[in-house]
Amino acid sequence: MTAYDAHDEPAAEHGMTRRQLMRHAGWFGGAVVLTVAGGEVISRIAGARGSTAEAATATAGTGTAAGTAAADSGTLRFVQVSDSHIGFQGPANTDVAGSFTEAVNQVNSLGFRPDFVMHSGDLTHLSTAGQFDQVKQMMARLRTDRVFTVPGEHDSIGDAGRAYRRTFGTGTLGDGWYSFDTHGVHFVALVNTLSLEKLGHLGNDQIDFVRKDLAGLPSDTPVVVFSHIPLFAMYPKWGWSTDDALKVIALLRRFSSVTCLNGHVHQLFSKTEGNITFHSATTTAYPLPKPGRAPAPTPQVVPARQLKAALGIRSVGYHRGDRELAVKDERLA
């Protein structure tokens, strides 16, 4: 599946209105690197200084640095970026294209070539043709064989995501959802930014797709799920949740290793419920307030010299047998 040779898709009956959009603030997330070794999912964030060799040693079990490690068909490395919001104009970040360029450069400087890059939504700010074309061209600079995407609510303004699907929807089903397998890991990419009033929403058609998609998988298959809005109830008052996600979570309970990755909330957050771990990505555009510390999740303006300090990347190491992830957060390089 490629994100770039898109075909038109049928429109949904209901698109994102600006009133609905205002309930869901946007940002550009940091680069999350996940490695799969020996059937276990390990996560860390792209560009964390001093962590690349450590992560390669810990996760691949070879004792070699990531930049020189021999090819291992059983080891998967990919990158997540999120919420580039190309087209945003505001004092919280006067150059989101520059921020995205820094993130692309950071991915390209990892010391290894990711198997793929996933952009987890809000590629654009106002879903215009020009903004979609700009972000497509910027992502074409990523040194990877494949780029996958899911839409954010900012990618669906007024047209139920038709412009997004024209550019990035090749090979997808319904309103843009799909799945794929690589290196023994099953990936599911969901769309929960349509049909929403306050919370994210998946809908019966998509939940039925997930049910059929997972039905034939052995329970020891590692599963990674991408969405824009969190699948857990991070802060429903601000729309940071998905109203029918529990139906999908129930289908994932039988798997021994499940990782759910999202954007949208502009801050680092992790939560584990049994066999399922949720990771919200950090921001590289502008911060949003922590839940409940402001009337609404609006972009936070900080002094220009402090903006980089308010943005961040995360490294996460995992050793076979450990009970917890080792997380290291740093500011954007």
Rank of each mutant, 00 (worst) to 15 (best):
M22F: 04
P10V: 11
L217D: 06
W238E: 02
T144K: 03
H186M: 10
G130H: 03
T57L: 13
L173W: 04
S241N: 13
L307S: 06
K198F: 07
L246G: 08
L231H: 05
H201M: 11
N105C: 02
E197W: 09
A304N: 08
G26Q: 12
T2A: 14
S195L: 11
S256P: 01
N105G: 12
R77A: 07
S82D: 09
E102Q: 08
A129H: 09
E9N: 10
G121R: 03
G292R: 08
F180M: 07
L123P: 00
L217T: 06
D122L: 04
A310K: 15
Y235D: 13
P10F: 09
G184H: 04
N192T: 06
N108G: 05
S257C: 10
P151H: 10
R44T: 13
Y235W: 14
F168H: 00
A140G: 14
S43E: 14
L142V: 06
W238G: 01
A6D: 12
E102D: 09
N93V: 03
V147F: 11
T101D: 13
E330K: 06
V96R: 00
G321A: 08
S315E: 15
T193N: 15
G184A: 07
M16L: 11
Y286A: 08
V265A: 10
V185F: 06
A66G: 07
Q300P: 01
G61N: 08
A103P: 00
I207M: 05
Y4F: 15
F187H: 15
V117M: 02
S219C: 07
L173R: 08
A189P: 01
V32D: 11
L76F: 06
T68E: 15
M118L: 15
T282L: 13
V41C: 08
S257L: 03
L34E: 12
P230G: 06
S315G: 13
E324A: 10
H24D: 08
D133G: 07
V224P: 01
D329N: 08
G130C: 02
T167E: 10
F112N: 02
P303G: 01
F132R: 06
P287N: 04
G200C: 10
F148E: 12
S73H: 13
V224A: 05
A189R: 01
D322V: 04
Y286G: 08
D133K: 11
H319Y: 05
E153F: 06
L123E: 07
R146L: 09
T68L: 14
F78N: 00
G317Q: 12
